[in-house]
């Protein structure tokens, strides 16, 4: 295999594994984590069940609905997610955070907002797949998405991008990248630092306030 051949996306489907990756649970708790197999959409079946009105919150269970994305759709999702948020400095690429799995969880969900997204995302991925298969034309095909004359294609890109951003920045790695430094217990709230206040004051003066 030549070095240029990108590794195919490896689904990070097991929730516990994903959690360990984003650093929210210690590795010790992974003992006994099972391997979850993707189910493919079976035609004519009623929508799957949601997680109900009283789900466990402290240790959420894996979303109960079967995943419907095909292997090809997952691979395309990985390529597109990494086009939107490739690795940068210490920040990982979107695929390394399991974003394609999140998109699968999202479009497979039985709720109204997600059902609305389902055809937009799945059809968009299917349309994109042939044009990004040959590595040579890939970058151009990806860059063309945002500028496409086709309204459907633009809508797909916008929505996929929004989901990628949402999924990426709600992980520990995303927090770090965007500069969210909360969610830690403190004995008091000292308020903003002198540096923050000074920077703010400069702006207020500019505004005449």
């Amino acid at each position: 295999m030549s070095d240029e051949t990108p590794k195919p996306y490896q689904p990070k489907i097991d929730r516990r594994t994903a959690l360990i990756w984003v650093g929210v649970v210690g590795a010790a708790t992974a003992v006994g984590a099972g391997v979850v197999v993707y189910g493919h959409k079976t035609g004519g079946k009623a929508e799957a069940q949601g997680y109900g009105t009283d789900p466990k919150l402290v240790e959420p269970e894996k979303a109960p609905w079967p995943r419907i994305m095909s292997e090809a759709q997952l691979q395309t999702a990985a390529i597109l997610a990494d086009f939107i948020l490739p690795a940068s400095g210490t920040a990982p690429a979107a695929s390394a955070l399991g974003i394609p799995d999140f998109v699968d969880e999202w479009v497979s969900a039985p709720y109204p907002d997600q059902l609305k997204d389902r055809p937009v995302i799945l059809e968009g991925l299917d349309r994109l797949t042939p044009s990004i298969q040959p590595p040579e034309g890939r970058q151009a095909a990806l860059e063309a998405l945002a500028k496409s004359d086709d309204e459907k294609t633009r809508a797909f890109f916008k929505r996929f991008r929004a989901l990628t951003i949402g999924a990426y920045y709600t992980t520990e790695a995303g927090f770090k990248d965007i500069g969210y430094i909360g969610n830690v217990a403190r004995t008091s709230d000292p308020g903003p630092s002198a540096a923050v206040k000074a920077a703010l004051e400069v702006q207020l003066v500019k505004l005449g306030l």
Binding site: A18, V24, Y51, T53, V58, N183
Partner: peptide
């Protein structure tokens, strides 16, 4: 029963609101 320090990545659909919640 309180998910004190949980982050969205631990929840289904990153914790987004649904008809169930």
């Amino acid at each position: 029963e309180t998910p004190m320090f949980n982050i969205p990545a631990q929840a289904p659909l990153r914790g987004t609101s649904t008809p169930d919640k």
